[in-house]
Amino acid sequence: MSGPQREQVPVTARALAWERRRRALAGFWREYARNRAGLFGLVGLSVFVVLAVAAPLFVDPGELSVTGAPGRAHQPPSLAYPLGTDTFGRSVLDLVVWGARISLTVGFLATAMSVALGTLIGIVAGHFGGWTSAVLMRVTDWFLVLPPLVLAVALAAVMTRSTLTIIIAIGVTVWPATARLVRAQTLAVEARPYIERAWALGAGHAHVMRRHVLPNVMPVVLAQTTLLVATSIIAESTLAFLGLGDPSTISWGGILQDARNAGAVSSGIWWYMVPPGLAIALVALSFTLCGRALEGVLNPKLRERR
């Protein structure tokens, strides 16, 4: 019966809000840290992000141009070039490190775009129901049944060649799953009595959606986001590999495409193909591990099965 004991209580409403957030974050981290795979994912992710951000410190962009290449073509790994060189004599290690910048950027931005779109459409469809829901969900279904790669290829082919195009092409194609998920969760939340209480308090649509539905949908969205980043990075690599990327930028998919064009497979130049491929796999794996761990933290029902 006795209320929870609290050490000290902040004085203002703002301080209260921050204190609440701090406690929530601390609790969240405690739960997350118990998942070892999730920690591995987080470490892997941090390594890639740090590498991508710090790349200009140890890679000279000039050496990444075809004309300014420092080495000879197809040199096997050596001390000077730990992962060998490519057709133009560029260091493959430098290319992979530099490529992380584009791959991660595209992955994050495309995911942000699709998650924002999916969450908005899902919440609106779930909240208003009726005709709004019917129309939005038919549009969602339409995007869902289109093969995403074909749609992305079509979009990338129609629009100008640029990284932004790739981001839009991926963002537009991967949102429907999020929208469906969010709509389902919204429907579940809206059936709760606290929504009724909010209406009775005089809340409007915006208040119900923002203060009640969104926070309760966020866990699903967050877990979905990390899983989507992996998908987006792979999609970016695929598009680049198919030659639809921006030819002037270096990305992992683009390196793979160059390697294939150079006949790396038949001539056994493994150091040209394996590193970018491995990088894609590792980043995707890291994000997936993080996503799974997040899911476990945010959805306690999954926790025991870990």
Binding site: R192, P193, Y194, E196, R197, W199, A200, L201, G202, G204
Partner: peptide, 22 residues
């Protein structure tokens, strides 16, 4: 909205009528 400021509802189930995240 104006009306619901002056008339308030208390629901049957106190566990359900509070948002668990608030």
């Amino acid at each position: 909205k104006t009306y619901r400021r002056r008339v308030q509802l208390v629901l049957q189930d106190p566990s359900g009528s509070l948002n668990p995240r608030h």
